[in-house]
Design a protein around this nucleic acid. Structure first.
Length: 596
RNA sequence: CGGGGCGUAGCGCAGUCUGGUAGCGCAUCUGCUUUGGGAGCAGAGGGUCGCCAGUUCGAAUCUGGCCGCCCCGACCA
């Protein structure tokens, strides 16, 4: 049992002006965290208790499938050079020098360290599979930390890595993680969804994210309420609705039309009286290709063509081009590649590179352009457009791929499903990922298989943001008075509010009750402060504690009040029954916390 | 890194335009009263006004530089 009077719980009546999102405001107000710098936070006792409960759940579930390690946060440069990521991580990596001038970095992820252990210690297929995990602090110099604990530069991550002999083994390790993650988030009381995720430009075959819907999130999820399809917008696809093609004009060949002042899609559509779906949008980028094996980085011109009503998805684009970075083309570059001005760019007559990102202009056509007819596009000439343009006939491309973002309301991609996609914002709390051979290959990890032949193990990597479980839980359960956490991750499960600490009888009753509740296995916070009842109620409502027992007026009749923070419902119960009742409620709630 | 905003007591803010004694509310400390939804009265403590330089008799206030923080965007294993 802990006494409020002796705990450091600096609650704030007003939220600091810096805080915007609910979890940030409330974590500060409830005395869970304090800020040290941008994206750097101290965890105060209540916050630390909650994070400890979360890590305990994570540890319990992970121990069922793997083994816990604890790896260094400081890594030598050489290790990261081996995987090629000393350069690839760029500015996101914190770097430092030791007294001898040697380069070091702070670990932002631990594939390299784990792989270095595996390569020097794992020799035989008989030692596989291995699932190695740790719960450890990560450092990432984020370009823009934000939203309290949502995106920070130092945070706690459960990261794990699997090593298997073959893909079937990786499938099994991946499934084990899927199961463990579902158990962890369910036990943490999160209403989560599992979505298909982008597996990145670095290779890797399959990837899922565990998401909690919240406006404070940074990701968008497309989902189908009908069949259950769900994917990160970076990955989501949809079926195309048939488009009514425009009538052919003239002899059917591309026809130059004077379109003064029609630089925007809406203007063009209005001018021709067409739907934006019949206009070809051009987005011109310079794309950065990271040099491999000592070659320098290089920028390449990329022209993306897609329907006027579609948006480029840069994650998908980066995936198909293996590009590290994009920036918009500047006027001089537009002139070089298109001989035309922004607003009037089009695909007809361009010199198309044969190989992507290898000199010249890489032309990418979105899949939705294939088979279309009689479209309108820019003529690469100020104030002129072309019509009757047929993709494939009138222009070609380096490659054609799905590089657009789906829109809300489009048909679900599942064959035979008649559902419409909805798009919502969410917080990513976990990610599981089939890595493949990237690190075992580049870092030279080898084992002997049953035939005595040297083979590369195949890897998976899996992450959970510990603080994000806390923030997501707060985002999903808060009001103007404060928040309430699922009992499993709350710093205390029940607060006992002695309404008048000056009253000896009440105080003793509170003490006794607290002892009983604790004996029943609950985490009890006894509010024994010499404060008015109102102050104690406000603090208890603020601080994320799911249940409160008021020891006050009715104590003379042998009764106390049990208040459930989530619903505000108050129950008068006999003092000797209070402990059992809270336990019962808690168990019900944890069952309700289950999700799909 | 582009755009915007902010920096004055622990928190929330006024004062800056128009230079002249650094203020308000909450919180904190002491005393008395009060005790079921952030109490009342009386008293008290707490500030290099983000930092550095300049202008001036005099700078929180004007000028220049720097630093930090927040938001939008870019970015995000």
């Amino acid at each position: 049992m802990r006494r409020w009077s002796r705990l450091f719980i600096p609650t704030l009546r007003e939220a600091p002006a810096d805080a915007e999102v609910a979890s940030h405001k409330l974590l500060l107000r409830a005395g869970y965290i304090r800020q040290l710098g941008a994206g750097i936070y101290s965890y105060l006792p209540l916050g630390q208790r909650s994070l400890n409960k979360i890590t305990a759940i994570v540890r319990e579930e992970m121990d069922k499938i793997g083994q816990e390690f604890f790896l260094p946060a400081i890594h030598p440069r050489e290790l990261w050079e081996e995987s090629g990521r000393w350069a690839a991580m760029g500015e996101n990596m914190f770097r430092l020098k030791d007294r001898k001038g040697a380069d070091l970095c702070l670990g932002m992820t631990h594939e390299e360290v784990m792989t270095s252990i595996a390569r020097s210690e794992v020799r035989s297929y008989k030692q596989l599979p291995q699932i190695w995990y740790q719960i450890q602090t990560k450092f990432r110099d984020e370009p823009r930390p934000r939203s309290g604990l949502m995106r920070v530069r130092q945070f706690i991550m459960k990261d794990s890595y699997s090593f298997d002999l073959d893909e079937a083994g990786l499938d099994a390790s991946y499934k084990l993680h899927d199961g463990a993650y579902r158990a962890i988030f369910t036990r943490s009381g999160l209403k989560f969804v599992v979505v298909e995720a982008d597996s990145g430009a670095m290779g890797g075959s399959q990837s899922q994210e565990f998401m909690v819907y919240s406006d404070a999130g940074e990701d968008f999820i497309a989902s189908c309420p009908r069949c259950g399809y769900a994917a990160n917008l970076e990955k989501a696809t949809s079926q195309l609705q048939p488009v009514e093609e425009m009538e052919t004009t003239g002899n059917g060949n591309p026809e130059l039309v004077h379109t003064p002042g029609c630089a925007a899609i809406a203007d063009v559509a209005a001018f021709f009286g067409i739907s934006p779906a019949s206009d070809i949008k051009c987005v011109a980028y310079m794309a950065l290709k990271r040099g491999e094996k000592g070659k320098p980085d290089a920028w390449h011109g990329v022209a993306v063509f897609l329907r006027g009503d579609h948006l480029v998805n840069e994650t998908k684009l980066a995936g198909v081009l293996k590009a590290a970075e994009f920036r918009p083309m500047q006027a001089a570059e537009l002139e070089q590649y298109f001989q035309g001005p922004a607003g009037y760019l089009g695909p007809v007559g361009l010199e198309v590179a044969r190989e992507p990102m290898d000199g010249g202009l890489t032309v990418v056509a979105d899949k939705s352009l294939e088979g279309r007819k009689n479209m309108v596009c820019g003529a690469n000439k100020l104030d002129y457009h072309l019509r009757n343009v047929c993709p494939g006939r009138d222009f070609g491309w380096t490659l054609s791929a799905d590089i657009r973002s789906v829109n809300e309301g489009e048909p679900c991609p599942t064959p035979g499903c008649a559902g419409r996609l909805t798009v919502g914002k969410a917080v990513e709390v976990g990610h599981i990922f089939k890595l493949g051979y990237k690190y075992t290959e580049s870092m030279g990890a080898r084992v002997l298989d049953a035939n005595g032949k040297e083979v590369r193990p195949i890897m998976g990597c899996y992450g959970i943001g510990i603080e994000r479980i806390l923030t997501a839980a707060i985002e999903q359960s808060n009001d103007e008075k404060g928040f309430w956490l699922p009992p499993s991750i709350a710093p205390f499960t029940v607060a006992i509010t002695v309404t008048n600490s000056g009253d000896e009888t009440l105080r003793k009753t509170g003490e006794t009750l607290a002892g009983e509740l604790e004996a029943a296995g609950l985490d009890v916070l006894l509010d024994d402060r010499d404060e008015r009842a109102g102050v104690k109620f406000k603090d208890a409502d603020l601080a994320g504690i799911p249940y409160r027992i008021n020891v006050g007026r009715k104590t003379a009749d042998g009764m106390v009040e049990l208040v459930a923070r989530a619903t505000g419902t108050t129950l008068e119960v006999r003092i000797d029954e209070a402990a059992a009742l809270v336990k019962e409620r808690m168990e019900e709630e944890e069952l309700l916390g289950a999700s799909v």
